[in-house]
């Protein structure tokens, strides 16, 4: 359960992470492995946040944030997912799975909110064109600052709404959770690694000798797995 005291820092951080995806500074603090870990740290269970973040990171590897394409917004969404997973006592069955589900669902909604913001920026830009064609510094600065502020607001509103909607749902789901950790986490890990593996192969298989590089890494990975 996320209390009201934690809503404020989470909402403010959600604003920053949402803006980092595209607007400023694109330093990838919005990547799931960072954002979700921060969410878990704020709600009291950083390990649950990291676990959720690692799974979301694998799912997000499929997303190429290329120009005009529409894609999930993983920043604010991962914060929400990590915060919810971290809000319950360590090892609560189902907490990480619900955190990941919430993260993906919120990322989907976040993608739509980014699309709406880009349309809004377009309206503002078209209105500013006559002044910008006159070389108005004020028009350029206003357009840029308005876009940045709107993106911060978008991230904050998305985070707050997601937390308010998903917190009671998560409470209910976890109170009735019945599947054991081994089975549920196996499915979670398999789905995430499958999506990541498929995405990486699609993006990188054109390189010469690609399957041998993948195979060499897998052999070393399995050896490390056995040894550690």
């Amino acid at each position: 359960m996320i209390d009201a005291v934690r809503l404020l820092p989470l909402t403010l951080l959600g604003a920053l992470l949402g803006a980092d995806v595209v607007s400023f500074p694109q330093a990838m603090i919005s990547r799931p492995i960072v954002a979700s870990t921060l969410g878990g740290a704020i709600t009291g269970n950083v390990m649950a946040g990291l676990l959720t973040g690692a799974v979301l990171e694998m799912l997000a590897m499929e997303t190429l944030p290329v120009g005009a394409s529409r894609y999930p917004e993983w920043g604010s969404a991962s914060l929400v997912g990590g915060a919810l997973a971290g809000a319950y006592p360590a090892m609560t069955p189902g907490a990480v799975i619900v955190g990941v589900f919430v993260g993906v669902a919120t990322a989907w909604a976040g993608g739509w909110s980014m699309y709406a913001l880009r349309r809004l920026n377009g309206v503002w830009a078209e209105r500013a064109v006559p002044a910008m064609e006159m070389g108005s510094r004020r028009a350029v600065m206003t357009l840029q600052l308005r876009g940045l502020t709107a993106d911060l607001l978008r991230g904050a509103v998305l985070t707050l709404i997601a937390l308010l909607v998903w917190t009671p749902v998560t409470d209910h789901v976890l109170a009735h959770w019945t599947i054991g950790r081994a089975a549920s986490h196996s499915v979670l890990a398999a789905v995430a690694a499958g999506v990541a593996g498929g995405a990486i192969w699609r993006q990188s298989h054109g390189a010469a000798g690609s399957k041998w590089y993948l195979l060499a890494g897998a052999v070393l990975g399995i050896i490390l797995l056995v040894l550690t």
Binding site: Q203, A207, S210, G217
Partner: peptide, 20 residues
């Protein structure tokens, strides 16, 4: 691309193990 493929083979089994 080659480094990413090698790292994917290396990191994903270990990540699966930790999630499980």
């Amino acid at each position: 691309a080659r480094a990413v493929l090698f790292l994917a083979g290396l990191a994903l089994p270990l990540a699966i193990a930790r999630v499980v």
